[in-house]
Amino acid sequence: MTELLQNLIDGLGRGSIYALLALGVAVVFGVMHLLNFAHGEMITVAGYVAFWTIGTNDWSWWLVVPLIVLSAIATSLVIERIAFSRVRGASDFTLLLTSFGVHFVVSAIFLLYVSASVKTFPRPTWVANTYSVRSLNIEVFDTVVIGVTLVTLIATTLLLQRTMFGLSLRAAAADFDTARLMGVKSDSVIRGAFALSGLLAGIAGVFWLMRAGSTTPTAGIDPMLKGVLAALIGGLGSLRGAVIGGFALGLAEVLLRSRLPDSVASLTEGVVFLLIALLFIFRPQGLITVAHAERV
């Protein structure tokens, strides 16, 4: 029982990061129908920011955290400006391919002009600290991640529910063309969506990088996969579903790795994907069904 509770806490900690990533994917999908496979590049860039500041110049994490978040927002906006704004209105498949292209270009830039090697930087000293509650040893890191994620989710909900920007974003997500006819400025709402997506990726990136303590030119692939996968599990376009999908994925990973017999424990990742494939067979729309007006 103790181990199960421990696993649940670990899974929630891991799932919190996935939820933030998935939410960022879902926000952009909502307004552009773009499944952004370049979403991880914000973390790639943030990783090198951490390397150059913490790793080579001994900056404090406290100083670097806002830089990481800002770099993720800036990267998201730059990618939108340089790549996605050029193909706005193109087919969904074109958008998808463009996002793949952005991913490869960003990776290649770091590969060519920085290094193919792993670049490391010190993790904060408290990351591995634990505290005890009865028989549970809980990581401070997990507690912080879960707490910050909850605050971020509440703030995002308020932003979407209580502000004009949020109203525009939700209107655009429901029916982009009608929203434009009603006076919503498409440029503003799309850039706003990318900025919000970058902000969420930046917050997730802070925790991802605190754990990893390293970066490479392809460091964004793993977080991108987790984010996209969680968004798919939850139901593409559903913000609530993305969050649920993130937590579900995190819990599934931790519980499977812990509960599978030793002889097949190395198949954990495979089993996760098998479960997801089964989910898609029975609910192709994901856990949450989203009604969209299709653009024609």
Binding site: L96, L229, L236, F280, P284
Partner: peptide, 19 residues
């Protein structure tokens, strides 16, 4: 259709990556 295509693409991509 879009969601199915996207889902299939993603699943194939992700399974390949797991590997």
């Amino acid at each position: 259709k879009l969601r199915l295509v996207v889902t299939l693409l993603a699943v194939f991509g992700l399974i390949a990556a797991a590997c």
